[in-house]
Nucleic acid binder design. Structure first.
Length: 508
RNA sequence: GUUCCCAUCGUCUAGAGGCCUAGGACACUCCCCUUUCACGGGAGUAACCCGGGUUCGAAUCCCGGUGGGAACGCCA
């Protein structure tokens, strides 16, 4: 039975060397979609063999970000599973065993070259227009001699003796990719151990990505490897390791990478690409994932999402639509504008109570607001969110738009100032002050309508000439939600408070 | 530099030789809705990288060029 016919097992294998970035989230998403679509298993494996760069904090953060996005891997360091451990730093013995096997078969050999000499040789080769492959200096050292050096306390990394043959990768996205022979050369599979504590087996140092990745994917029974295109060239090395062990190949799918607006690989440099950052700014996981899915994947023409919009769909819909056929070959540029639009769509369409609950922490980030909100009823808070959600694209925008309802001293916009100092409006202002004082404390949309009518009647103003001055005098703005929605949320006292604050500010 | 990958509106994409006068989405412009703004509805501007083939016919197939991306690390 080939890998393609076995029950699906896919994995996402981040290295904990920083936050989870959107490219990683997208890889996780594609794996998740494929697993769920086929009733398969989603594995999370932490690739932390680089002890210099991997940190526990990063691992915690990456796992937390994945969780916040809503991913629930079936097997992971936390959840466990039938192929533990799920952290490469805890699997060193296994790598040691296979590395030793390659060494014993002379498929791998000790390389005593220094880092500096290697770098020099590589740079020289590039300068001369030659492919920067290892020159094989240590490949010629007789194994017995090498072992004697190691036994005498010498330190060396292990290099894989590359096969001189062409490899063809049958990639689900890219099609058949040919790797000509001898372009990679002998590559390291384990590092030079600094000391005894650094050895995973007698005289063998910490393993390197291309090696443990293959060992793990094999041992963990991974059937489909869905990952970024940046791993495509590496695949020639990995193919050789599969070959050396005679292991069955999983199905590969190399998805095109995500690029920043500068057409460069999305990184910390070009914009906030961290999932953490996006989430903290109030992008919704649903929107982020929906957007990321469409970046390099097309669901096909025959879909009819429940949203009614051709590009907005639920996770369940995404799963049912997903197919590797729709995966794109060319890199895609991350377009924040579209993300913003999509996030706005979700803010408007998700249940009000849900959005309100998720927005709460953004309000409470301001200490005075936390107490202010506690003074109001839950219904009131819901009402505020309802009237303002339409104009917001991120959760972060909600408190900004709600500021007027919470703080008694509204900021006065320049356009509103012009309305407020216009002598033509004085009749409206005095009528407004008189009429508002007659109002009961609890306001309704009907009362606000009546208020506007009577202000119109006694001032003689109508249309925009009536409406704008009222808005400016009460909110300090020339735009915003309907006043008949705004006033009831404020109540008479708060309304008067704002009116007098605006008056005082204008006199000053 | 070397190897690999890729190429349709500004951006994400549909398109598997005639269904293409190239479709959709975001953005942009205009109109409608609205006594404001936003939301919503409608319309519009906008693309097959270039050059050769193959073919009755090419966005689609082939070759070359150009452009972009990735990898080339004792990182992953």
């Amino acid at each position: 039975m080939s890998a393609a016919q076995k029950p699906v097992r896919v994995r996402f294998a981040p290295s904990p060397t920083g936050y989870l970035h959107v490219g990683g989230a997208r890889s996780m998403l594609f794996n998740h979609l494929y697993a769920r679509k086929h009733g398969g298993t989603l594995v999370l494996r932490i690739e932390d063999t680089d002890q210099e760069r991997s940190t526990k904090e990063s691992e915690v953060m990456v796992i937390s970000d994945l969780k916040r996005l809503g991913f629930k891997p079936d097997e992971s360091p936390e959840a466990g599973g039938p192929y533990p451990p799920y952290r490469q730093s805890e699997r060193l013995k296994m790598y040691g065993k296979y590395a030793k096997e390659l060494l014993d078969r002379d498929q791998a050999y000790y390389c005593f070259c220094t880092d500096d000499s290697l770098t020099q040789k590589r740079e020289l080769a590039m300068k001369l227009g030659r492919p920067p492959v290892y020159d094989g200096t240590c490949a010629k050292i007789p194994p017995a001699e090498a072992r004697a050096k190691i036994a005498a306390g010498g330190k060396a990394g292990l290099r894989f003796r590359a096969f001189s043959k062409e490899y063809i990768l049958h990639d689900q996205v890219k099609g058949d990719v040919r790797f000509p022979p001898d372009v990679v050369g002998d590559f390291f599979i384990t590092r030079t151990p600094k000391d005894k504590a650094n050895e995973i087996a007698e005289g063998i140092g910490m393993p390197v990505y291309n090696f443990c990745c293959v060992v793990d994917d094999h041992l963990m029974g991974i059937t489909h490897v869905i990952r970024g295109e940046d791993h495509l060239s590496n695949n020639s090395r990995q193919l050789q390791i599969y070959d050396a062990f005679g292991w069955e190949l999983p199905v590969f799918a190399h998805v095109a990478v995500v690029l920043g607006s500068d057409r460069q690989k999305l990184s910390k440099r070009n914009g906030d690409s961290s999932v953490f950052e996006y989430l903290n700014n109030g992008y919704l996981p649903e929107a982020l994932l929906n957007f990321l899915a469409l970046l390099g994947w097309n669901p096909g023409a025959d879909i009819k999402p429940s949203s009614g919009h051709p590009e907005i769909f639920t996770m369940d819909e995404m799963i049912s639509y997903f197919s590797m056929d729709g995966l794109q070959k060319a890199p895609a540029i991350f377009d924040v504008q579209k993300l913003n639009w999509m996030n706005g769509q979700y803010i408007r369409s998700l249940p009000l109570a849900d959005i309100a609950a998720r927005a709460r922490s953004f309000f409470e980030a301001i200490p005075e607001w936390k107490t202010a909100l506690e003074a109001h009823s839950p219904e009131w808070y819901l009402g505020v969110i309802e009237t303002i959600r339409g104009e917001c694209t991120m959760l972060k925008d909600l408190p900004i738009a709600a500021k007027f309802f919470i703080e008694p001293n509204p900021a006065i916009e320049d356009a509103a100032k012009a309305v407020l100092i216009d002598p033509a409006n004085t009749a409206v202002f005095s009528a407004l002050t008189a009429e508002v004082s007659k109002l009961p404390e609890v306001l309704t949309a009907e009362l606000v309508d009546a208020l506007q009518k009577s202000v119109g009647a006694s001032s003689g103003a109508k249309g925009k000439g009536l409406f704008m001055p009222i808005r400016a005098a009460t909110t300090g703005r020339t735009h915003g939600p309907e006043l008949k929605k705004v006033f009831p949320l404020l109540g008479k006292t708060a309304l008067l408070e704002r009116m007098s604050a605006i008056q005082t500010a204008m006199k000053a």
